[in-house]
Write a protein that binds this DNA or RNA. Sequence first.
DNA 1: TTTACGGCTGACA
DNA 2: GTGTCAGCCGTAA
Length: 256
Amino acid sequence: MTDAPTADRPTPDPLLASLRDLAEPAPATLTDRVVDGWVRAPSPLGEVYAVAGAGGVRLVRTAAHAGDLEVFLEDYRTRHGRPVRPATRPPRGLLPALRGTGGPPELDLTDVGDFARKVLAATARIPAGQIRPYGWVAREAGHPKAVRAVGTALARNPVPLLIPCHRVVRGDGGLGQYLSGAGDKATLLAGEGLDLDRVADLAAAGTRLIGSDTTGVVCFPSCHHARRITDAHRHGFASLDRARAAGYRPCRDCRP
DNA sequence: TTTACGGCTGACA
DNA sequence: GTGTCAGCCGTAA
């Protein structure tokens, strides 16, 4: 304790001490901690704006959906209570993630509520090129009845493309809605190799699950296991109950 | 505290 | 097969 007061050394004035601290040059990273940075980046949906702080990417919006850049940035400042300025470089991992060649970059989801965070975490586990119903996300998030609320949470996904909310679809086989329009959802899914015509055909036929009579396992049609089932052994089911009644068990990977 | 609102779902006509 | 409607549930105002 070098600052211990003694008879000939008075107690340091806390105000003076803090003023002395202010006189010190700010650490190089201090600005980055209090000011977020925004960048433009290419994506399958065209140009996006991404805003990131020291904790990771906080917001992603397509330029087409964000509208006027100044309005977008002002809205960010108001909503998050943080200043934003152009960043010198994109956050690490952002560009490959947007290209689909890497996992998500570090994300800062501190502004997201508990329920929504669980929803986003479950959504992040859906592999590229595959789709899952809203009800599946609700169950995985630990709130099996909150299906409608899952839709609301995904509608507010701050980092679309990075957390793939486009892979969450309606239980009846329809694609459902998307932040920047259902067309964008279809574009993204087709870009990941999902056969949208087949998805539509299965929906029209009322086929929700596909099982193999050689393994006795039933999967979501887009599960990579389901895609390997040969025609002769493939069976469609309208529900998990029907599949179970026929002696099938749910796939451990896609967990229908 | 209450109310209204959604990227949904399942039942029923 | 298609359309409608009540129910569900977390959020924001």
